[in-house]
Design a protein around this nucleic acid. Structure first.
Length: 480
RNA sequence: GGUGGGGUGGCCGAGUGGUGAGGCAGCGGCCUGCAAAGCCGUUAACGCGGGUUCGAUUCCCGUCCCCACCUCCA
């Protein structure tokens, strides 16, 4: 079975064959760094992280690019607001912050969130502001071929002429004449209200640092152009996969496709879009105020459990978050980890096991992670059964497979929170061990009341114990 | 109004023209001094109304509802 992927443009699942045998070029949209990340951003990154890992596990060499949009209206607005006399600074937005400092600060916040959840860095992570000349080349080409024009109102804007490009709307199968007009449609110097800015003329009051010289006057890039320019620069005029959140299909990806295709580029061969994260059925977004940040999730559960949760639904499905979701993920994950601890007490290092063919088939089927997880859990059950009948060698084989599956899903590489290995921990271990030996004595003397009292005492302190044939194991439980 | 995606057991969430994933939760059993963990068994679903079919949750028609996008958005 070969990998099959759902392509938004054709609205069908197709066999995936890369442009160049053995290699995959992938571009996926990162963040506009104007605020702190929420879990929706991270879900998208996790989805594409899993795709990349699966491509690599399938033998492909993957060249991945994820952009950073470090200039846009909101970044400039927020920076400008921080200089206002009545500005109320808070922990997210300090006073007097230049736009580039604000953008860089949030870029780092995104990195922290990605890192905490085991999302690997892409091969390249270009910033919009670093590719002004590439954008100029693209605009020039579009102007010369009659698909773009400078605004007629003297603003210095340059627009893409959607009516000049017959295929406009092909990605989302929309007809220009059927589209609902934006409520605040401002025709400015546009030929059609749907024309979008490739270049935005510098406006009085905007910082000089946010403007670049161009053949059409000083200004800054429009939103969609950067992705076309950077994808082409790093991956070529035609590349394999372009990804992003479902909400980027229109207008962002539609516009990218139009401008690149109009420039004569083949552009992306597959378009992949991940579903939204919802809270009680509503899309998480800042404007609705129903966002949950990665920090909040990481405070509520272990990073691996958060990663498990974010990756467990099919990438195209909406992911429903509700209170308790993380605890369920934690319980499922602990079941898996407990088996690994039992079967491979010394770790899963060494040979890299193959994954079960059912797992492979599930992943090849448009990354059907829920089905793949079913295989994983069935493997765990088989392994536990093997352990119960004393077949350590079978159990080890199944444990290695389990570890390989966790690796592909990116769960095993999620960094665990730092447990200070300092004196505090040593002291705790000594105290617990001492209590456990008292309990063992009580048990030996058949004084079960005393033994249970010790167990309860430990439990109330968050120390969970388990009697096994190898002796009593203990661990500190986080959360509840 | 246009476009796309959905409505599956208590919850999450795959999938399929017929033997009905998986997880979480529940129940019964084994194990255990009792637990925990594990194993075995088990309860329970396919929005509604028609149609096609030997048989539909799966296909077709209608209908209701939900979500996303059409404005910045992962």
């Amino acid at each position: 079975m070969t990998l099959r992927l759902y392509d938004t443009r054709t609205a069908q699942v197709h066999d995936f064959q890369p442009l160049e045998p053995g290699k995959v070029s992938l571009y996926y949209c990162g963040a506009t760094v104007q605020g702190n990340p929420h879990v929706g951003h991270v879900r998208s990154a996790v989805a594409f992280d899993i795709l990349i890992r699966w491509l690599e596990a399938s033998g492909y060499e993957v060249l991945s690019v994820r952009n950073v949009t470090d200039i846009d209206d909101k970044i400039l607005e927020k920076s400008a607001a921080s200089y206002a006399p009545d500005f109320q600074a808070d922990s997210d937005y300090p006073a007097h912050e230049p736009w580039f400092a604000l953008a860089y600060r949030f870029e780092q916040a995104f990195h922290n969130a990605y890192d905490a959840l085991g999302v690997r860095r892409p091969s390249h992570e270009p910033r919009a502001t670093g590719h002004i000349t590439e954008m100029h080349t693209l605009i020039q080409r579009l102007v010369e071929s009659g698909h773009a024009y400078p605004s007629t109102d003297g603003s210095g804007d340059v627009y893409f002429d959607v009516r000049s490009w017959a295929a406009y709307g092909e990605l989302t199968r929309q007809n220009l004449d059927e589209m609902q007009d934006a409520p605040d449609a401002d025709p400015r110097g546009k030929r059609d209200p749907r024309d979008f800015a490739l270049w935005k003329g510098h406006k009085p009051g905007e910082p000089e640092t946010a403007a670049w010289e161009s053949p059409w006057g000083r200004g800054r890039p429009g939103w969609h152009l950067e992705c076309s320019a950077m994808a082409t620069k790093y991956l070529g005029e035609t590349f394999d996969i372009h990804g992003g959140g479902l909400d980027l299909r229109f207008p962002h990806h539609e516009n990218e496709l139009a401008q690149s295709a109009a420039a004569g580029h083949g552009f992306a061969r597959f378009w992949l879009h991940n579903g939204m994260v919802t809270f009680d059925g509503e899309k998480m977004s800042k404007s609705l105020g129903n966002t949950v940040s990665p920090e909040e999730m990481l405070a509520a559960a272990r990073p691996k459990a958060v990663r498990y949760f974010l990756g467990q639904a099919h990438y195209r499905s909406q992911l429903v978050y509700k209170p308790g979701s993380l605890q369920e993920a934690e319980a499922a994950l602990e079941r898996i980890e407990h088996f690994l601890d039992r079967a491979l007490p010394h770790g899963a290092e060494g040979r890299r096991a193959r994954v079960p063919s059912a797992f492979r088939d599930a992943m090849d089927d448009d990354l059907n992670v829920p089905a793949a997880l079913a295989v994983l859990h069935e493997t765990v059950r088989s392994g536990n059964t093997a352990l119960d009948r004393g077949d350590a060698s079978a159990a080890q084989g199944l444990a290695s497979e389990t570890a390989a599956m966790l690796q592909i899903l990116g769960i095993s590489e999620v960094p665990e929170p730092q447990v200070a290995g300092g004196p505090g921990e040593t002291a705790l271990a000594q105290l617990v061990e001492s209590m456990l030996s008292s309990r063992a004595e009580a048990k030996a003397a058949k004084d079960f009341a005393q033994a249970d009292a010790i167990r309860d005492q430990l439990a109330s302190a968050g120390v969970h114990i388990e009697d096994t044939p190898q002796g009593t194991q203990w661990s500190v439980k986080s959360g509840g």
